[in-house]
Design a protein around this nucleic acid. Structure first.
Lengths: 217, 217, 217, 217
DNA sequence: GATGAATGAGGATTCATTCAT
DNA sequence: AATGAATGAATCCTCATTCAT
């Protein structure tokens, strides 16, 4: 039962418990994204992982905590990316495509995240984890500031900037969130390379058209 | 407007049961929009109406049926509006603002509908009522056709048209769906006249910029 | 609304209310026989009659009362028949076939009654209406007395007589009660004339073989 | 009788869960027999076992499954017995008492089973578990074949054989099923040794009188 | 770390009954 | 006589959680 020479096991290989926790997170992410917090039961999660329900409690102290962990794992990289981008030098930082395209690519790797975020948006903050408040609000503010400060002489009024950020937010998230339904109805996969490229092109045009200031290309 | 001889037209006065049913629909609409199908319990609905749970069954045969009725009541006017707009004469019909603005005004009167629709979108069609399938798919198709057929020589490829319609769909719905959260976080009401006007202006610019063909103004 | 000349309406024609009550009894008899007291709901009864549930209360004050009325209507003729037979002159009265055959024919006209009685038997008297206790117990006692007093010198001990009556009771009732299931499984209708005649012949042989005293034929 | 080396035979000691499951089956058997499927509630079962209702679901996935398990546990031994008897050598197999008496003794050990079976019979197969169909129909067929093939030259027509089997079925089951009511009304316990012996004697006479062929004693 | 068993709270739904119309 | 509406009680069942093993 005991590993023969545990001392030589490299730390890089995650311990078994961490693997299980990750598998639980994966399953929960899918289910929460699909059905929302109330619609996804721990039974569903356990079934998908191949565990019994009580085992989940060896890794997460409650359903709520599991949900928070799913969100944290998903949002973390996005926040990191945005923070990093905000540190870019002046000309690049003002190019919205330098923001939108990496974000799109990041979300494509974690396609459940947009639906999780939209679920939170729809719930109007009821279930909105404090963590989410902490992350989303500043992110919005930063994006808004970026937009406002863009144009040369012609500055963008804050209300307009807010609506613009909101619009981009929903176009991006909605694109991913609609993919399963879109595929079910039309048979077309929005996440295929060609459609994905078209969507990025669309977002480029949107930002060029709606943002003031120096044209980016 | 007034019924000519009200004594002979009892239909004009809604029966008591119909009033109750409408109040149930109102309460359910709010709760389903806020918490989704699974998150909203019949107890919540009954409490909000001031009834006991079993009384709901005098008006709707099941929670599912209540949900479907809420959707039907909400979507009906939108579908009617779009159908009507589709019958407009040529030049007007091609003006996307002739579509977007009335839809925005309609949704402003029923601000829970967008969240209901987004919940359906997020669930990937799992709970998607057949009714919804029947209505949303053709509506999308019609909008897509409208976009495709617009530009003079330069026609829009269908994939691009689809993405464009999808983007507008999410910008519009997301605007309403975000209103409660936005207000909770920033204190600003997106549905106030000034913000609402700004949003319409934003949508006008979006369509002008992204749609080909004769500029509308 | 009022009947034009109510005085000329013959009393023989049952009033409308009585007709409705009878239709309710018919429906209830079928359902109680098939599913037992708990398994049959007033909704089932009302549906079968084509009424709404509250209307049933215009004819019977409660489900329990409806059940009792069904039993009373069904058992009444049987008790009458047995009472009448008990008044027959000596030689005939001792012929068990003079009892069994008319009872069989009576039950054939009301084929749900046996199942009702068996349901009562199975419930062990829990739901056993007082009425039933009043009727069944004396009927059993009378039959038992009849058996006991039969043979000439060789009298039948009461325990044996009781078991014999019990056996005949279950053979007769079981025959009718099994008819639906038997038909469903084998396709043969036990109540068809030929099977019915065979069953009477079987009962005749049973009584001849098991009863002491002068052979009846 | 005692397990030779109990320490190495843990299978001999039933696990705790199995004990609980058996107690649930016991309680359910009584209640289903007494009140039928609809009349017995899970609350009744849980109360009798000393559990809360949800705990029942740790052992049986639904009320229906519990009901089926009760039937299976009860019918199993009967079917086994009949199968075994059917393999007996020729002269014994044709002796109906070799069938009736062991069955009677088996049922005496599980006196609720007859009422369960009669409930199924009364419901006309509505709730009749597939399992029951599989077991009862062949058993009847086998018994019928046994009767048919008995007499030497004088063979029994199948219809007559069917009615005979049906009659024996109801006499045997009715005896047990009536015991509680009979005791409640008369004070006499049908399952007492003396009454039980009398009943077997009655069944012996019945089969001798009604079956053709070589007398068994 | 995994799980069988137990449970309080709550889920949707059915039921018999009442009452005003 | 019939019924739409309302409801207390009870139905089966699911949920998240706990605990001993």
């Amino acid at each position: 039962m005991a590993p023969p020479r545990s001392a030589t096991v490299p730390l890089a290989r995650p311990r078994r418990g961490e693997v299980t926790a990750a598998r639980i997170l994966d399953a929960a992410e899918e289910l929460f994204a699909e059905r929302g917090y109330h619609g996804a039961s721990l039974r569903d999660v356990a079934d998908r992982v191949g565990l019994r329900i009580p085992s989940l409690y060896n890794h997460f102290p409650s359903k709520e905590a599991l949900y928070a962990a799913v969100l944290a794992r998903g949002i973390g990289p996005v926040v990191e990316l945005l923070t990093e981008l905000a540190r870019a030098p002046e000309p690049e930082r003002n190019d919205p495509l330098r923001v939108v395209e990496p974000v799109m690519k990041l979300l494509a790797e974690r396609p459940h995240l947009p639906r999780l975020l939209l679920h939170e948006t729809l719930s109007g903050g009821e279930r909105l984890t404090p963590m989410l408040r902490e992350w989303m609000a500043p992110t919005f503010a930063r994006a808004q500031a970026l937009v406002e400060g863009r144009g040369g002489e012609e500055t963008v009024p804050p209300e307009r900037a807010a609506l613009l950020v909101l619009a981009m937010y929903h176009v991006v998230l909605g694109f991913f969130a609609s993919a399963p339904l879109y595929r079910a109805v039309t048979g077309t996969d929005l996440l295929s390379p060609s459609m994905f490229a078209r969507q990025i092109e669309l977002l480029r045009q949107m930002s060029e058209a709606l943002l003031p200031g120096p044209k980016t290309r």
